[in-house]
Amino acid sequence: MSSWYFSHLTLIQGMLISIPLALSVQIALRSGVFSFASIGFYGVGAYGTGILTMRGWPVLPAMLLMIVASGVVAYLMSAPLIRLRGLYLGMVTFAFDLILTVVATNGGELTGGALGLLGVPLGMGTGGLLAAALVAIVLVSQLERRSVGRALVGIKASEELVMSVGVDLKSRKRTVFAISAALGALSGSLYVSTFSTVSPTSAGFTLIITTLTMAVIGGTSSWIGAVIGTVIITWLPTMAATIGEYQHLVYGVVLVLVVMYAPEGVLGALRWLWRRLAPKVRMARPSGGAALAATGPPGGPPPDRGAEAEAEPVPADRVKG
């Protein structure tokens, strides 16, 4: 067991580091915020922490500073951003990630140019990584429960509805944006103080692919999905030795296939299985089946009316929100 642990230490560490990043994308997508910005903030966190610790800062304060700063900056940035419609927000945050690569490459001595930062002081043990991943999981999973959780899911389903039940839509979206950024920065900080290096490419386009694959393959409806996705993507390359340099090609194909055939990810598949099995479980309890029968057969008058209605929003959709 311990020899297995030590021979796979890098993978385990990589997995723990990726969890907050996958969560950062998951929480944004779950709340209907089409943002890739947290992947850019991963770079901010990695470079920021690296630069600070190389100048003598202790690791923890440097990390904390970068996480808080990222959250605050993201909150301020979000004011104009959340007004944008879905595709525009996706585009702008995608552009934000790409521009950070440019900044890192051209940052001269501060960012180490195209080579990036080398020899950043190590400051994270596996225990620390585990603790950070757990904290991230606890914080994100709490936001899926109760009133907060219902409001966030509601934002994704229908903005008009959540506004009409009194949810402060803008404030919720901005806070989610900030939390997502802080999680990204956390992940980047952990990375640089574990592996002691960061380069422009490690926070570039391939990271967007990898992270999206992690979040989407597991399913964005819950933190569990992000964790499942991270585990799968971390261990996938070890299972198929031939993947090697074609790793991102495989991720790309997997991402496309998941989006096409299982947009709810592994989690969605599990839920689907559960729904198939659940009636058998419920057979034991008489009340469930009887209740359904009492209201008559489902799907009475216009069965597809709901779907049709969703596709054709009230004019208000365009005017506001």
Partner: peptide, 22 residues
């Protein structure tokens, strides 16, 4: 804002049902 009006004690239903499937 719509949410402020809602908090003033106004509630509504929609012509097209808006229920969360999940």
């Amino acid at each position: 804002s719509p949410f402020q009006v809602a908090r003033m004690g106004l509630a509504r239903t929609f012509q097209t049902v808006r229920l969360m499937p999940q």
